[in-house]
């Protein structure tokens, strides 16, 4: 009888194994989204950098017209949103690696996420105010 009990090597349910969430309940979502946002940012940041690099000396009215163009405004909204999402998840990993104290770590992660969200919304409002 006791021999039989020793053969229970797997304590996880088949459903738990299939979901693959691990002990953190989140699985690979954070890691994956960091990669997805990085790939999305490659063309977006290249477009933004080339655009502002060729803007030296242009007037306020010309700048407003550029930001207000529907295509530019849409791409700016995507750039701002995805850039701050990627930044928040990247800085979160740095904090989790280097801040040992749990209270300080949690507070710092929440602060970073809040700041990134605020800055992203602020930029989006600015773009929409010009574009609409």
């Amino acid at each position: 009888m006791s021999d039989k009990k020793l053969h229970i090597a797997q304590m996880r349910s088949p459903l738990g194994r299939v979901r693959g969430m691990g002990s953190a309940k989140q699985g690979s979502h954070h890691w994956w989204i960091q990669r997805v946002t990085s790939i999305a940012l490659l063309p977006l940041m290249l477009w933004f950098t080339l655009s502002v690099a060729t803007m030296g000396g242009i007037s306020y009215v010309e700048t407003i017209a550029w930001i207000g163009h529907p295509l530019n405004a849409a791409l700016l909204l995507l750039t701002v949103g995805i850039a701050f999402h990627h930044t928040a998840s990247g800085l979160q990993v740095l904090i989790e690696d280097y801040v040992a104290d749990e209270w300080k770590r949690t507070a710092a992660v929440l602060l970073i996420k809040g700041a990134c969200l605020l800055l992203a919304v602020l930029s989006a409002v600015a773009v929409l105010k010009i574009a609409i």
Binding site: T63, T87, A126, V127, K129
Partner: peptide, 25 residues
């Protein structure tokens, strides 16, 4: 990556200044 995170503030400033008017811009 951390430097770029700080650099994004430039982009926010640029967009908000443009929305705020000719003076801030």
């Amino acid at each position: 990556g951390s430097i770029w995170a700080g650099g994004l503030l430039f982009m926010v400033w640029w967009l908000v200044a443009a929305a705020a008017g000719p003076g801030p811009f």
